[in-house]
Design a protein around this nucleic acid. Structure first.
Length: 493
RNA sequence: GCCGCGUUCGUCUAGGGGCCUAGGACGCCGCCCUUUCACGGCGGUAGCACGGGUUCGAAUCCCGUACGCGGUACCA
C-alpha cells in the first residue's frame, strides 16, 4: 500500500511556524516513501474562521518548497478537501454510529452541562467529566424514551451527537515516535461528534476524512496525543483499520512552554510563516533548520537540501522531547544559504529590494560589484540594502555608534585625505591608489591607520563597519566621494 | 486535581549495556587573519535531572521521585 499523509490545518489564522514543521515532516515522509502529500482544510469551526487563511497556508507551503499533491486547489480524487464541503458525509457517518449504539443524541444545553460540572465539583469530584456515569443523568437518547427523542428531533430541538465511550476499557496503540501508549477510557469524555450547528467536531471529521481519503499515516503535533484514544475508539466503532500514528514533539519557546504567538513575539521570534517571507529569510534555511528541530539523520551532518532531507528522513529518528526554537541557529543557516548562493543568482532579488527602498541601482554591472563586496558580510538578503545603500546615495545620517570614533581632529585628517585623492584622475581612482593615498596621509600626519581610515569611512558611508573601504570608494567614484567628505566636514565639524 | 508524554552541554542533537575519560552543530570565550565590521582558520568552555535496583559492567534496561510539557471544550 502506498503512503498517503495529510497536513490538516484549520484556517483560523496565518500558518504558524510549528504548523509549517508539521507539514514539512509529513512532506518529507511522503516523498521518502514515494507517497502522496495531501492538504486538507479543517474549517469546521465557523466562529474562528479567518478569511484568507487558506490562501496563506498554500502560499506558505509553496514558498517553503513543498508541493501539494492533493488539496483544495490541486487535483485529487478524494475531494472535496475542505471539511465544510463534506458536511453531509459526516451526518451519514454519525447516523451510522448511532444506529450501532456507538453514539447518541444529547439535548443538554451548555448551561445544563456547566451546571452538572459545577455540581460534580461541589460534591468533591476534582475532575468533572461528561463520562459514562454522568451521561446517565443527562438528557439524551440513552436516558430519554424513543418517543421523546423522536419528538425533539422532529421539533427541531438543538442536539449534538456524542460518542458513547465504553465504561471500562483500555485503548492501546503504537505510536511510531513514542512506542506503545495506553489510555483508560474512564478518563475520556463522551466527546461531541456533531455540533448543534450541524458541523462535525475535529474528532469525527478527522477520522472520517483520514479513512475516506486513504490516509496511511497520521503525523501531527503532540497536542493531539491525548485525543488519540478517542480517535482509535472511532476507528473501532466504524470497523475501520486505524492509520499509523506519529505524534511530533512540540516546538518550545526559549522561556519554556509551547511556542505561542505571544511568547514568540516577545522573544523576537517571527512566528508566522508569512513573517519569514516578508522578512526575506531564505526558505532553504528555514526548512533545513526546522527539519533539525526534533529530528536528525544520525550523523554529524547539518546542511541538507529539501531533496536530501527527503532521502534521509524517517519518523523513527524523530526525537520525543520538545525542541526549543533557537533563533541564532536559524540565522546561521540563513547566512550559510545566502553565502552559497552566487551573486548572479542573488542579483534579481536584491535589485527589486533596492527598488522597493527607492534606491536607483544604476546598472547591473555596478550592482553586481556592490554585491561582490557585500556578499560575505550579510546574514539576510535585505541587509544588502541596509548595508549597501551608501553605494547608491549619500548617507542621510551617520550611525550613532560609529560617531563615537569621530574625534575633534577627524576633520583635519579627512580633509587631508580629500586633498590627496583630489589630485587623482578618474582613471587613477582605484582601490590601490586610494589606499596608497591614505597611507600617505597617515605617514605625513604621523598617526595610526585607523585614525584616518575610520573617519573617512564614516564620512563616506555613514557607517562604522562595512566592506573594504577602498574598493567601495573606487566604486562610488571620485566626484561623489569628495562631495560626501565636504558634507561630513560641514555637518560633523 | 486528574490523564498522558517527556528529561544527554545554555540550545538543537549523536548515543540504543562495554567502542563514552559522552561525539557534532549553534552560542559563548580566546588566538590567528585583518584598514573597520564581518567571513574564514585554530583552540577552549559546558551535559547524561535525582534516588534505588538489574548486571562483572549502565547515559543506555527496570522502578520510584522531581521537574517540564501537553490534554482535560458543541477549539482545532
Amino acid at each position: 500500500m502506498s503512503v498517503r499523509v495529510r497536513f490538516a490545518p484549520s484556517p483560523t489564522g496565518f500558518l504558524h511556524i510549528g504548523g509549517l514543521r508539521t507539514a514539512l515532516y509529513n512532506y518529507l515522509f511522503a516523498r521518502h516513501h514515494g507517497g502522496t502529500f495531501v492538504l486538507r482544510i479543517e474549517d469546521t469551526d465557523q466562529a474562528r474562521y479567518v478569511e484568507g487563511a487558506e490562501e496563506d497556508i498554500i502560499t506558505s507551503l509553496e514558498w517553503a518548497g513543498m508541493t501539494i499533491d492533493e488539496g483544495p486547489h490541486s487535483a485529487g480524487k478524494f475531494g472535496p478537501y475542505r471539511q465544510s464541503e463534506r458536511k453531509k458525509m459526516y451526518h451519514e457517518y454519525a447516523k451510522q454510529l448511532i444506529d450501532n449504539s456507538w453514539a447518541y443524541y444529547a439535548f443538554d444545553s451548555t448551561e445544563e452541562i456547566e451546571e452538572m460540572r459545577d455540581r460534580l465539583k461541589a460534591s468533591g469530584n476534582p475532575s468533572p467529566k461528561y463520562d459514562s456515569i454522568t451521561r446517565q443523568s443527562m438528557k439524551n437518547s440513552l436516558t430519554l424514551s424513543q418517543d421523546e427523542v423522536d419528538k425533539r428531533l422532529e421539533a427541531g430541538d438543538a442536539y449534538v451527537v456524542r460518542l458513547k465511550v465504553p465504561r471500562r476499557d483500555t485503548v492501546k496503540f503504537e505510536d511510531l515516535i513514542r512506542g506503545v501508549v495506553s489510555f483508560d477510557t474512564a478518563g475520556l469524555d463522551d466527546q461531541v461528534l456533531l455540533k448543534s450547528d450541524g458541523m462535525p467536531t475535529y474528532h469525527l471529521a478527522n477520522v472520517v476524512d483520514d479513512h475516506t481519503m486513504g490516509i496511511t499515516h497520521v503525523i501531527r503535533g503532540e497536542e493531539w496525543l491525548s485525543s488519540a484514544p478517542k480517535h482509535m475508539l472511532l476507528y473501532q466503532a466504524f470497523g475501520w483499520e486505524a492509520p499509523t500514528m506519529a505524534h511530533l514533539p512540540l516546538i518550545m519557546s526559549p522561556s519554556g512552554g509551547k511556542l505561542s504567538k505571544r511568547k514568540a513575539e516577545s522573544e523576537g521570534i517571527p512566528v508566522n510563516t508569512k513573517d519569514y517571507i516578508s522578512g526575506n529569510y531564505e526558505p532553504k534555511a528555514l526548512i533545513n533548520f526546522l527539519a533539525y528541530l526534533g529530528w536528525s539523520p544520525g550523523d554529524d551532518s547539518e546542511i541538507h537540501s529539501m531533496k536530501e532531507l527527503c532521502e534521509l528522513f524517517s519518523l523513527e529518528r524523530v526525537s520525543k522531547g520538545g525542541a526549543v526554537f533557537n533563533y541564532k541557529k536559524l540565522m546561521w543557516y540563513n547566512e550559510h544559504y545566502l553565502r552559497s548562493t552566487s551573486v548572479k543568482d542573488l542579483l534579481p532579488t536584491v535589485k527589486s529590494l533596492m527598488e522597493e527602498a527607492n534606491l536607483d541601482t544604476k546598472n547591473d554591472e555596478y550592482l553586481k560589484r556592490v554585491l561582490e563586496l557585500l556578499h560575505e558580510r550579510v546574514a539576510k538578503v535585505n541587509e544588502f540594502v541596509t548595508m549597501g545603500a551608501f553605494f547608491f546615495e549619500a548617507p542621510k545620517d551617520y550611525d550613532a555608534g560609529a560617531l563615537k570614533k569621530w574625534k575633534s581632529d577627524s576633520s583635519i585628517f579627512v580633509k587631508a585625505y580629500q586633498e590627496k585623492i583630489g589630485s587623482l584622475t578618474d582613471n587613477e581612482f582605484t582601490a590601490a591608489n586610494l589606499k596608497t593615498s591614505l597611507e600617505a596621509v597617515v605617514s605625513e600626519k604621523e598617526v595610526g591607520f585607523g585614525k584616518v581610515m575610520m573617519p573617512v569611512r564614516i564620512a563616506t558611508t555613514g557607517q562604522g563597519f562595512g566592506p573594504d573601504l577602498f574598493s567601495a570608494l573606487a566604486l562610488v567614484g571620485k566626484e561623489e566621494v569628495i562631495r560626501r567628505i565636504n558634507t561630513a566636514v560641514e555637518r560633523l565639524g
